[in-house]
């Protein structure tokens, strides 16, 4: 836990009063669910050659077996070091998700045929849109935050209106409004630039608030010390305040980046060939929607994980002064 105490309380899952009811609940749920008939259940049945009984007895046996496996697994993992626990639990849960996907009877042959195009066109476009939008949104957010903290009424008014408008209107509408509205003003804009503009403006508005909060979290004394030393406003903000605010800004900003990666799929409504668009259209010809959706989802997930790892590194960098 944060600021760990020096008392070894018994692990929650190590208490019989917790784990026995939990396992009982699990057993009942599995039985009720008719777990023996699921893909994992069938796997277990085959593995331990439990066949030959009545389906009902089979179900109870498989549910009991699965419960014992889970219980044993918990007992083993609980005795490991924290880092290993995290990795093992992570891998086990990931394996469960994959088995879940696997149980859809996917055509891997179809996936293999399409994945190349999904990546070279769809993923590349998704990453392109996301990264450009993230960069622009960060700049907008910094400008927005400075405007909101300034004593200039015009800047304040513009910034307030901006965040209100772009946080208040659905992103989908913003994309339509830019793509179809700008031509009304005599300026024809491509689908990709329109999507980037909408994502940047929308996320810039959210991140304006994150940046403002981060900057405001730095105590007045830091500003005063910088000023007393003769630092000018830009140097004070960029060299003294922002680097400290980063500690507060990074975690929610990482959230925003991940959300933006997936919200870039909204751009598919104006016909941009990004990952989600291709996932929906490529499956149509052979009625293999699920294959494409799952593949696309896993690709999104993979890149979200990369962003999470990146966020962890940046957080450690800006938090290094606080790690003793």
């Amino acid at each position: 836990m944060h600021f760990a105490d020096n008392v070894d309380y018994p692990a929650l899952l190590g208490r019989p009063i917790v784990f026995l009811p939990l396992l009982a609940l699990l057993f009942e749920a599995l039985r009720w669910w008719n777990f023996a008939a699921t893909a994992i259940g069938r796997g277990l049945t085959g593995l331990f050659s439990l066949t030959g009984l009545t389906p009902a007895a089979d179900n109870v046996a498989v549910a009991a077996l699965a419960t014992v496996v889970v219980g044993f697994n918990l007992a083993v993992v609980m005795r490991l070091k924290l880092r290993r626990q995290v990795y093992i639990v992570w891998l086990e849960l990931a394996a469960l998700i994959l088995v879940f996907f696997y149980s859809f009877n996917l055509s891997f042959d179809f996936i293999a045929r399409k994945i190349g195009f999904l990546i070279t066109q769809g993923l590349v476009m998704t990453l392109y849109i996301s990264l450009v939008s993230i960069a622009i949104a960060s700049i907008l957010a910094l400008i927005g935050a400075m405007a909101k903290l300034s004593s200039n009424g015009i800047a304040l008014g513009v910034a307030n209106f901006y965040t209100s408008l772009f946080r208040g209107i659905p992103l989908l509408m913003q994309i339509y409004m830019i793509y179809m509205g700008l031509p009304q003003l005599g300026y024809v804009v491509g689908a990709v630039p329109a999507g980037i503009a909408a994502l940047s403006l929308c996320y810039g508005a959210y991140m304006t608030e994150i940046f403002r909060g981060g900057i405001e979290s730095i105590p007045k004394g830091q500003w005063e010390a910088a000023r007393a030393l003769g630092l000018k406003p830009n140097a004070t903000l960029l060299r003294i305040i922002l680097p400290q605010a980063m500690r507060v800004i990074i975690p929610p900003t990482g959230n925003q980046f991940i959300a933006m990666l997936k919200d870039s799929s909204l751009v598919s409504v104006v016909g941009v060939w990004e990952l989600m668009y291709l996932a929906r259209t490529q499956g149509q010809s052979e009625f293999r929607h699920i294959e494409m959706m799952i593949t696309a989802s896993l690709i999104y997930w993979l890149f979200s994980i990369l962003l999470e790892l990146l966020q962890g590194r940046v957080e450690r960098y800006y938090g290094r002064a606080h790690a003793r």
Binding site: A225, A226, L229, G230, R239, P243, Q244, A321
Partner: peptide, 25 residues
């Protein structure tokens, strides 16, 4: 100026606290 609450810059090392203003100002 020296403040009651020190107001050192926590994201910088002791040396950088003294050297950065020299470079910037």
């Amino acid at each position: 100026m020296v403040f009651q609450q020190f107001n050192l810059f926590p994201h910088l090392t002791v040396l950088e606290n003294c050297a950065l203003p020299l470079r910037l100002v």
